[in-house]
Write a protein that binds this DNA or RNA. Structure first.
Lengths: 215, 215
DNA sequence: CCGCATCCTCATGGATACTG
DNA sequence: CAGTATCCATGAGGATGCGG
């Protein structure tokens, strides 16, 4: 555990628990689904093994995550506690805030399709959708499309002006007409399954109240 | 600036900007009010002067804060940009999440009355109040009182069962019957003024959906 | 005084190799 | 597979200096 701020302030005490490097990204992975150690390593490109181990221990003793022993032999599975799962709200807030940082595209950054689960749930299931409209852009094989979620439903159009069929199915899956894949958002904690090349799907999110890009 | 996560994920890119130590606490201070360098030092007990300088530069180049030259001579004043001010939402989320960490009281931690501005605004002005009820406990000279904000107004009662007068005035100030002080929340970015001993006021917040304390 | 810049020490993070 | 152990680079924290 890192050094405490020593401040009687909710934000400071929250950061004492989840403010260390990698901690919130670990929570992001477990918001997608409970995972094994190896799955976490793969979903957190760049993390060192000793750091992941340290952070998992810290988060466990803090009560954010828990180790579950699968009935199958001795396999360990990490999952969020109910309190840890409540980090979804501030994490979704940070994701909405990050919009101006996403519009420049992925560049050389790593990408995992599973990362789409959290913002997609924020936009289509969360509180943002019923309250105010939101737009999600999905780039499929270098073409950019926009999905706009309003109270009346989901509209889709190509970024260049042409229209596109997109359906939010009754079972919660989003099917793009270009058949890039099926995003399955049915049950908590949510799991994305994408048919075809995983790296073919990129997403750019427009926040409900977008701020100014940092130039 | 610290090392980038190198992940095309909204949370990772947000943390590339505000994830470094002290960054979100600096934003907290500027959510209270624009401030001079010296005021920031006082509102961030424990920060080293070189770190504060570094972080202020990082946040400025990232577009989160800006330096304003007051017309009075050469005084520098730091303030949030519009984009930086949108960090209020995720910060309030983290503060709500931190409730189980606050109930154990301040202990040896530092305290500044100004820190109350952010959560109080979250509870009484923000989205939490109209949507669902919230309870704020304020400890005044070792006595604990609870303020409960509902759609119908503000109720107050002593923690031990006795009643207490508390008024949310039309001008936005909260006046406790015990005359501990007046919390003035009138205009953005909000300023707290407390009459009397600053350290006499402590606050414990109950989140709308409180999680389990970490034992 | 204010607003930093420099210096120093030590804890932490990162990459790689290794082990039960 | 699920971590440990090790080594090195970096960053945090405290003290002090310094120009305006």
């Amino acid at each position: 555990m890192s050094r405490s701020y020593g401040q009687y302030c909710g934000l400071a005490r929250a950061l004492d628990v989840v403010g260390d490097r990698w901690n919130l990204l670990i929570v992001r992975q477990l918001l997608i689904a409970p995972a094994r150690y190896r799955e976490l390593l793969d979903g957190l490109p760049g993390v060192a093994t000793n750091l992941l181990t340290d952070r998992l221990r810290d988060l466990e003793t803090a009560g954010v995550i828990e180790r579950r022993l699968a009935e199958e032999g001795n396999a360990v599975r990490y999952a969020l506690t109910p309190w840890g799962a409540e980090l979804r709200e501030p994490i979704e807030g940070l994701i909405r805030w990050s919009t101006p940082l996403m519009v420049r595209g992925p560049g050389e950054d790593h990408f995992r399709a599973g990362w789409l689960v959290v913002p997609l749930r924020a936009l289509f299931e969360g509180r943002a959708a019923p309250h105010r409209s939101a737009t999600v852009g999905i780039a499929v094989e270098d073409q950019l499309f926009q999905l706009r979620a309003t109270r009346s439903g989901i509209e889709a159009k190509a970024h260049d002006g042409g229209d596109l069929d997109a359906v939010l199915r009754a079972d919660g899956a989003i099917v793009l007409g270009l058949a890039a894949g099926v995003l399955d958002l049915d049950d908590t904690p949510g799991l994305v399954e994408i048919e075809g090349d995983e790296t073919a799907v990129r997403a750019v999110f427009n926040a409900p109240t977008p701020g100014k890009p940092p130039s």
